[in-house]
Design a protein around this nucleic acid. Sequence first.
DNA 1: GGCGGAAGGTGATACAAATCACACAGACGG
DNA 2: CCGTCTGTGTGATTTGTATCACCTTCCGCC
Lengths: 215, 215
Amino acid sequence: MATQQTQDDLFRKNYPLFEDQLVHEIEEQGEFRTFPADEVLMRKGQYIRSTMLVLNGLIKIYREDDEGNEFLMYYLKPGEACALSLVCAAKHEASPIMAKTVVETEVMMVPVDTMSEWMGRYKSWYQFVIETYRNRFDELLITLDNVAFRSMDERLEFYLKRAKEAQGTTLLNISHHEIAQELNTSREVVSRLLKKMEQKGRVELHRNAIELKNL
Amino acid sequence: MATQQTQDDLFRKNYPLFEDQLVHEIEEQGEFRTFPADEVLMRKGQYIRSTMLVLNGLIKIYREDDEGNEFLMYYLKPGEACALSLVCAAKHEASPIMAKTVVETEVMMVPVDTMSEWMGRYKSWYQFVIETYRNRFDELLITLDNVAFRSMDERLEFYLKRAKEAQGTTLLNISHHEIAQELNTSREVVSRLLKKMEQKGRVELHRNAIELKNL
DNA sequence: GGCGGAAGGTGATACAAATCACACAGACGG
DNA sequence: CCGTCTGTGTGATTTGTATCACCTTCCGCC
């Protein structure tokens, strides 16, 4: 758990556009929390009473259907918030998504009611909300493109690139099984496609790890 | 072209929450336009300088990729606006979508700069913008679900239901070819699936028309 | 050090959908 | 009334992916 001082630093570093007064309010009203890696923060069907502002770490946002299928929509990085929690919170609807930490992650939880009040009071807050919608919308469109237009090998490649970019490393510690789930396909298909990529020299495969070469 | 009076009525009917002052400004600054059916309003790659508020008629929003594939994302009905034009306009990015009228459609074109100014001045305007993002986000998620999790027969059925709901009729004047494009599949597949649905008594097929029965 | 479980490899088969090929029917203009 | 064009129906074939079956390897743990 960060001290009061480093917490404040973290906040200002990741949300530099927020007014001082707003930062104070967030720190006052919000709840600072740390989650370990691979923790599910929110399940499909849950009701949302607060939104998370990411301070540190990395979160994956999944879409789930009723039969337990899932796939990765996008990552949430420090300085970002989940547009969906803004959507659902305001509509008092159940969450249509699942969120899971990739690594240990620090977030600030902000209650919904407080947030909507800030919309009127802080210009920087509503600009942030609008910006969040925009960025998530863009990301969602890209995800949609991939699912709609691309074949599995292209989608896998995009998946790896995005993972590399989000995690900031070319060594991904992830199993074929998990990739398969996040692309909504089967483990065998992922294994075979990765094998082909390895033969082309684009990746190197290890147990529980994939090293990206020419991507 | 509507007279000044009916234009104002149209506006207030479809956007009842806007303040009087805002309505006046929109009518002053905006450009009222009428488009015939099947007109392309915006192409992928174009830069956007204004947003459309739909007053009357119906618009389809498509996603296109570089190879000319396309698919239907959602409909825009009177009282709605395209979230994407809000996104792109603000970012000065090229449009990632294509918009086409379904029937004769009346819209109010509002310049981007004016819009962002209203964000600060009119509470009802920014609530409208936020609401627009929310609704489009929700719709996009549903579309994504269909593409990701459902098979073509389920997707076709959903497509027909949505068309019925948007157009307010059970008699759809549309060719198999067009449906195929909007689902990003081939005409033959659509024809075969429709034939099966007809055998089950769920639709009745005519030339250039599909009559929905038990949907 | 052997055992069990998770991760990964690989062939065989099944199936939905895409593609190719062609026939036919209704609309419409000359 | 004929030719052409667009829309539709349908068989045959191919392709990408999913599924099933089974095996090997690696790792931690009792």
